[in-house]
């Protein structure tokens, strides 16, 4: 109150844009730690690895915006990745059309699993934590059953498979930007547009903000929740396909713990778990922060187990800073 409101203090700038500063700080630390970090090759590899998490995080954000949570994303991703790996050699025809059919089918199946979550939560009023926990174990069980617990390999020389693995390992000619990263960028742009520029996006956020008010305005709140779960399922299956494309194998253990990383990305990005607040852009910053943390620790040769502890600490720090941010804003 005492300072000119048009000249925000340094503290308030730091607090408001804390995740951008955090990302910048992590990038600087990485650069100092290793001369290899700031090479195009390393950055592209990092982004390629983060592509599936980015997709799942967008889906998770949609669900979180409506006030729900989806624990089944990792299992659905496993089914999506395996489904494509199993379907490609089984199809009677080859090539781009076959790949399209496989991807379309797998994504559709993911959407179906998400829709089941949606019906349980939006239709039957089940707590999303419980409904998606059940879906998480069911989908994982299905993945193990389909593959007998073994990785699903496919002939490398199959034309369909060559297109898929090419997508997963190569980049845009000339620039070198990996194809999966380009695809994720397009999807990010699409969802930024949908959430900011369409009535559907606005009402999805409103449903999480105050479901009663939305319903009493005469709007079908259940439909926004249902759609969020359905889209989350579709995006999760797509994420699994991206994993298969990169690793050239479909495994039933894909995406174990992925739901936690996706929730962490949303939360670091400032999404409220109670719904109604969060943006795609900030969630993607959250994904990058998680990715950089892992990258730094790999560069420093921190063993895997301590990495988990450090990751947890950083999540807590990020959320604490947002809490301070919210309090400062309220005081102004």
């Amino acid at each position: 109150m005492s300072t000119n409101p048009k000249a925000p203090s340094l503290v308030s700038i730091l607090v408001t844009y804390n995740i951008y500063f955090m990302l910048a700080a992590l990038a600087i630390i990485s650069t100092l730690l290793s001369e290899h970090f700031l090479t195009l090759q390393n950055l592209f590899n990092l982004l390629r690895q983060l592509a599936p998490l980015a997709l799942v995080s967008i889906g998770m954000l949609l669900v979180i915006l409506t006030g729900g949570i989806d624990l089944s994303v990792g299992s659905v991703a496993a089914i999506g990745g395996m489904g494509v790996a199993m379907a490609m050699p089984a199809l009677p025809f080859d090539g781009a059309t076959a790949l399209f059919v496989c991807i379309f089918g797998a994504v559709l199946f993911g959407a179906l699993l998400g829709a089941i979550n949606g019906v349980l939560v939006a239709g039957f009023g089940m707590a999303s934590f419980v409904a998606t926990l059940a879906m998480m174990t069911m989908a994982r069980g299905l993945a193990y059953m389909l593959s007998n617990g073994q990785p699903v390999r496919f002939p490398r020389d199959l034309p369909t498979a060559q297109i898929l693995t090419g997508f997963g390992s190569k980049g845009v000619p000339g620039i070198g930007l990996p194809w999966p990263v380009l695809a994720v960028l397009v999807i990010i742009a699409l969802f930024i547009f949908l959430l900011r520029r369409t009535n559907w996006g606005r009402l999805t956020v409103a449903t999480g903000s105050n479901e009663d008010a939305v319903r009493l305005a005469g709007l079908p709140a259940w439909r926004y929740k249902f759609l969020a779960f359905t889209l989350c399922g579709a995006l999760s299956a797509l994420a699994g396909i991206f994993v298969t494309a990169r690793t050239a194998v479909g495994t039933p253990v894909t995406g174990i713990g992925l739901e936690l990383d996706a929730i962490a990305a949303c939360v670091i990005g400032g999404a409220l778990l109670s719904g109604g607040r969060g943006t795609v852009t900030n969630t993607m910053i959250g994904v990058l922060i998680l990715g950089l943390i892992g990258n730094i620790m790999n560069l420093m040769s921190v063993p895997a187990y301590p990495q988990q502890i450090i990751k947890g600490v950083i999540i807590i720090l990020a959320v604490l800073m947002q809490g301070i941010g919210a309090r400062t804003k309220r005081r102004v």
């Binding site: 409103a206 903000s209 008010a213 607040r277």
Partner: peptide, 9 residues
């Protein structure tokens, strides 16, 4: 507050 408005919007 609970039903009429979206307070945070």
């Amino acid at each position: 507050k609970q039903q009429g408005c979206l307070l945070h919007m």
